[in-house]
Amino acid sequence: MKPNKTGDSGGRSVITARNIDLTFQTADGPVHALKDVNLTINQGDFVSFIGPSGCGKTTFLRTIAALETPTGGNLTVNGMSPDEARKARAYGYVFQAPGLYPWRTISGNISLPLEIMGFSKADRQQRIERVLELVDLAGFGGKYPWQLSGGMQQRASIARALAFDADILLMDEPFGALDEIVRDRLNEALLELWKKTQKTIGFVTHSIPEAVYLSTKIVVMSPRPGRITKIINSPLPAERPLEIRDTPDFIALAHEVREGLREGHGDD
């Protein structure tokens, strides 16, 4: 609970990264996955990480979730180390694949983290109802994953990440495997959900329009070594219908992101 305020969006800072370095030792020698990454994410931010493959965007997200350990620098989440935050169940993580258990129904899948964390049965039931409602899957709780479309499965996996009230939602290309039309709808739904729940969201993507449409803050990264080349605070209003993508502001912001990506590439 650090009250340290930072200028840009005014919220309490939730994630603070100072000079993060991460080197993987592989058979082909060391790989510099993250170099000197500095970033502050505030309560309620929607932060997108964008960049070409190998730029370390997924690795950074995993570092926040304590799935990787930095080899240098200082990273705090809610004033704790990432691993302490993980044990305090501060994150909901959503991967590119839904990762639902085929032998559990949708309700059963959402119940899984709740069972692991020891919620009572009545509490579980009530939470499942609530998050199913939230991702617009009310009435599908009794279905098995294979009975649902890819987009619905991904919504179920988001519901699972929301069920235990983690205040940080980390999403690693959650819509990367879906088609454009479904993706648009889910982007819209995600914004709605973000507004309703006031979560802090870290979102990895390959898509410039997706990053621009969703984020309050866009982090542009580049590879070899993975680093942040640009941090753009979005000037777009909080209210974002899909049509906003045709406005000059949106196009200008998308252009800025594209420029940022190009600059990053100029280096190698």
Partner: peptide, 20 residues
């Protein structure tokens, strides 16, 4: 990915075994 999910929920080895 499934093991990572379990880890993000801070599941014990026994929970990973019985449930996954």
């Amino acid at each position: 990915m499934q093991l990572d999910l379990m880890q993000s929920w801070n599941a014990s080895a026994a929970q990973v075994f019985w449930r996954l």
